[in-house]
Amino acid sequence: MANGTHRKLRLHVMRYNPRVPGDAPRLQTYELEEADGMTLFIALTEIREKQDPSLQFDFVCRAGICGSCAMVIDGRPGLACRTLTKNLGEEITLAPLPFFELIGDLSVNTGKWMRAMSERLEAWVHMRAGELDLTRIEERMDPALAERIYELDRCIECGCCVAACGTARMREDFVGAVGLNKIARFRLDPRDARTDADYYEVVGDDAGVFGCMSLLACHDVCPKNLPLATQIAFVRRKMAREGLG
């Protein structure tokens, strides 16, 4: 709508391509006219289509469910795709998530980190021994328990919790709230054969649950509002008990 009522936005975007020799991090400013319902997905796509085809960022679902587009928006980690520009000022600063390997500009390699974390924590259901007979009626599960598992299963591995984490700032090997939440999730699941002794093996140290300083920025920034504070406290208590033997 060219009726002049739309704001002029100025997006200050952190630019840096570590693969280009001599490139240095800098803020580059793009101006564009706001539109109704504009999200940062729409704004950045328009900038790349019309102003700067070299700008790197990651969007997939653009619906707030896949976790690709986490970035630091005006100093706070969040999902860019579901951030409406109308909720921001006219000057918007965008930076890549810290902590993760930078691919370029706003694109970081959360996938690689999440995979490594999953391998380290063995973040999958460890089925009990014996062949699964798929022709038979499934195991029963208490409906309330299924809902509690789903509550923790809603993690989208976006990386916001790690980017906001004080411990991760100091310990590169910290598993983060995302990792601890997974442990809480599998602990809850009767289909997983592991015991607390097994979980202690993977998170019973300072790179795991005892590294958490309870600053809990993870809880504040989680786009899915996962109950990270209570889950980390719960896992810590269980692991402490396990550690005391």
Partner: peptide
Amino acid sequence: APKAVRELAAWGVPWSRVR
């Protein structure tokens, strides 16, 4: 399809359950 949904149940999908 029933085998697939049951396999996924065993793999950890928290299917909504009957009350």
